[in-house]
Simulated assay, not measured.
Amino acid sequence: MALNFVLDPPVGPALRDGVLSLWTDVSNAGGAVGFVPPVTAEEIRPEWVRLLAAMAEGRTRLLAGFDEDGTVAATAFLTYNTHRLMRHWVWLYTVMVHPREQGKGYGRELLAAAAEAARGLDGIEAIRLTCRGGTGADRFYAACGYKEVGRVPDAIRVAEGDDRDDVIMLLPLGV
């Protein structure tokens, strides 16, 4: 069964708990979403609060994918670029699909829904994202139409002696 993707779902305890649970599970399964395992929901909560503030200010939009039970199973955050010369593209952050749902095509569906949502935003012509090298995420994004446009060697320190490239990717929306 496909996920139901909603742009700007109502914010409340169920969404908060769902996103925190998803983010914790993805991180602890080795997902490259800003944390290194082991991590708890309480450690992730400050980042959620930061994103909530950005959402309330209209700087960030949440795209959430819900399973048939209404559980948050996937997310992506679209963030407007505030630089006056770069307002024609958005950042895509914290792209996650729950580990139990991986391998079902939901990641591709999430990226397609994010592109569709971005096309609906005034003046947006492209999506830009970064991903952690050495995870295979860059190959996945490339398979979904993103092009690598830059790479910063050893920019992400996962652990002492384990530095990864920060891979910059772009998806022109063809608007």
Results as ranks from 00 to 15, higher is better:
residue 20 L to Q: 02
residue 132 R to I: 08
residue 147 K to I: 05
residue 89 W to T: 10
residue 141 Y to C: 09
residue 160 E to F: 04
residue 134 G to S: 06
residue 117 A to H: 06
residue 151 R to D: 14
residue 31 G to K: 04
residue 11 V to M: 07
residue 156 I to E: 07
residue 13 P to F: 07
residue 3 L to S: 09
residue 52 L to Q: 05
residue 170 L to G: 01
residue 66 F to N: 08
residue 69 D to H: 11
residue 152 V to L: 13
residue 15 L to I: 12
residue 99 P to S: 09
residue 167 V to R: 00
residue 2 A to T: 14
residue 112 A to C: 06
residue 105 G to F: 09
residue 88 H to T: 10
residue 22 L to I: 00
residue 11 V to R: 06
residue 14 A to G: 12
residue 142 A to P: 09
residue 61 R to F: 02
residue 81 N to M: 09
residue 16 R to H: 14
residue 87 R to E: 11
residue 158 V to T: 13
residue 36 V to K: 03
residue 28 N to T: 05
residue 114 A to V: 06
residue 23 W to S: 02
residue 59 R to V: 00
residue 148 E to P: 05
residue 128 R to W: 06
residue 73 A to C: 13
residue 111 L to T: 11
residue 88 H to F: 07
residue 92 L to D: 07
residue 34 G to N: 06
residue 102 Q to N: 07
residue 96 M to A: 03
residue 136 G to Y: 05
residue 14 A to P: 08
residue 83 H to T: 06
residue 23 W to D: 03
residue 171 L to I: 10
residue 63 L to D: 01
residue 172 P to F: 13
residue 76 A to K: 02
residue 103 G to R: 11
residue 28 N to Q: 09
residue 44 I to P: 00
residue 59 R to P: 00
residue 12 G to A: 15
residue 30 G to W: 01
residue 164 R to S: 13
residue 111 L to C: 12
residue 60 T to W: 01
residue 160 E to K: 12
residue 63 L to I: 08
residue 17 D to F: 01
residue 97 V to R: 04
residue 35 F to W: 09
residue 33 V to T: 11
residue 36 V to S: 14
residue 86 M to V: 06
residue 111 L to S: 08
residue 168 I to H: 13
residue 142 A to M: 14
residue 167 V to H: 01
residue 74 A to L: 08
residue 74 A to S: 13
residue 31 G to C: 11
residue 23 W to G: 00
residue 31 G to H: 02
residue 122 D to H: 11
residue 82 T to G: 07
residue 29 A to R: 01
residue 41 A to Y: 01
residue 109 E to T: 10
